[in-house]
């Protein structure tokens, strides 16, 4: 049946709604070949005189079926790339500008390049807002309650430099009382856990 491969590609995305499976280069190429074959077959049939085959039966329905299949394949490929890109964009806001290795290996080269460009465009935009080097839009996703917060370190992170120059050694399970704005990114990345009484 036409477009079965395209269906498999989309099902792959459906099963993995919030993670990015490895870019399926092989399947994308196979679908591309199916499209090319269908186009060639249609071109041959369309050029036959009056589009009737040797028995005088119209080839139009055949051409229409292939045409529908071409568009269906195209739609699936485009949707595959589009939805992956959307996921990737969300990741910039959830993970920050550096993605974990396990995710990076699943990206195609084009996707990696896109992510780098998006990150840098976003950074440029944020720097341009207001005075003083800009506004970091990725912090304060919820209304902050206090200037200083208590956090527990969840992993052996190592050295961490604060904006006033002082350096902290972050070991697993150590607790710290720090300015909120310094911690926010590490909290989002799961390095710190915010402790609330």
């Amino acid at each position: 049946m036409f477009c079965d491969k395209a269906h498999t590609l989309i099902k792959e995305l459906d099963r993995n709604r919030d993670i990015l499976p490895p870019y399926n280069n092989d399947l994308v190429n196979e679908i591309g070949k199916e499209i090319t074959t269908l186009i060639e077959q249609n071109q041959i049939d369309a050029q036959t005189n009056e589009t009737r085959n040797s028995e005088g039966v119209s080839l139009m329905p055949t051409i229409r079926v292939r045409h529908a299949a071409i568009h269906r394949n195209l739609r699936c490929i485009l949707a595959y790339h589009y939805n992956r890109l959307n996921s990737l964009r969300t990741m910039r806001w959830e993970f920050g500008s550096i993605l974990p290795v396990e995710i990076k290996v699943n990206l195609s080269t084009a996707e990696s390049n896109w992510f780098a460009k998006y990150s840098s465009t976003l950074a440029k935009y944020m720097r341009s807002l207001g005075e003083d080097g800009g506004v970091n839009l990725a912090v304060d996703m919820k209304p902050p309650k206090a200037l200083y917060i208590e956090v527990r370190c969840m992993v052996d992170y190592g050295r961490f430099e604060l904006s006033d120059g002082s350096v902290l050694l972050l070991k697993k399970n150590s607790r710290h009382y720090l300015p909120r704005c310094e911690c926010e990114e590490l909290i989002r990345q799961g390095v710190f856990q915010h402790i609330v009484n």
């Binding site: 051409i63 229409r64 045409h67 529908a68 568009h71 739609r75």
Partner: peptide, 8 residues
């Protein structure tokens, strides 16, 4: 969502 053959 999709084009019909007759309109191409």
């Amino acid at each position: 969502n999709s084009s019909t053959f007759l309109s191409m």
